[in-house]
Design a protein around this nucleic acid. Sequence first.
DNA 1: CCCGTTGTGTAGACACCCTACATGTAGGCT
DNA 2: AGCCTACATGTAGGGTGTCTACACAACGGG
Lengths: 119, 119
Amino acid sequence: MNPDALRGHMDALLLSVLEAEPLHGYAIIEALQERSGGALSVPTGTVYPALRRLERTGHLASEWATVGGRKRRTYRLTESGRRQLEGERSAWRDFTTAIGSVLRPRPGDARAETGPLRS
Amino acid sequence: MNPDALRGHMDALLLSVLEAEPLHGYAIIEALQERSGGALSVPTGTVYPALRRLERTGHLASEWATVGGRKRRTYRLTESGRRQLEGERSAWRDFTTAIGSVLRPRPGDARAETGPLRS
DNA sequence: CCCGTTGTGTAGACACCCTACATGTAGGCT
DNA sequence: AGCCTACATGTAGGGTGTCTACACAACGGG
């Protein structure tokens, strides 16, 4: 997966995996991989700063917890975050529609015509 | 359209509008707007450098032409560009599939349940 | 005792898109 | 004549979000 392609969609992904239940960073990364069928391998250096960014903008809130001697910072969606997620979803639809309509091959564009089409 | 969302998809867009016929930069920008139903307003400062990048990597070739006193640099797909376009299309499918499967709302995620579901 | 897994985090590099500007021709309007 | 819009190409510099690489730390198994 081209790293640049993720640009601007990270927030949507994070908000989406947190919609059902609060999770900590490490679990979020695993959830992204699992939900995408292994296609998404987001490094920690991307996720942790993004989570802090989303907390700073009020879309997430976090609490510390200790489980089995390990310290976790668990993030959950705020009300603002839920609204943001809806916006991201609609933006995603618009985005894919726009790009898709440009990318979709037009009839006659193929360099090797399949049909006869002669005269 | 969030500028960051376009990141990494510009090449695919340019290659795609050039698939059917060679075009010059200005016409490419108009074609992108038209094909996307007005959703894509890509500034010249994005398109011209991107076209040169694609020419440098061998996916495009260009010739100068003069039409009505105006000088145009007309770009066309190379064979390498056509192969690249196929790759970009398949990458786009993978990308939307991966993001889509994460973004798709799960049953039970809604904060306000519509059904009763009690007991 | 080392190593893999779990877990959080920062620093710096890099890539690419954007804003803003520079330059020039053609044609219409006043 | 002067001005404005459309057409047409291009560069410089800024911003910002993702990545690579690293640091730290606790746990459990071999």
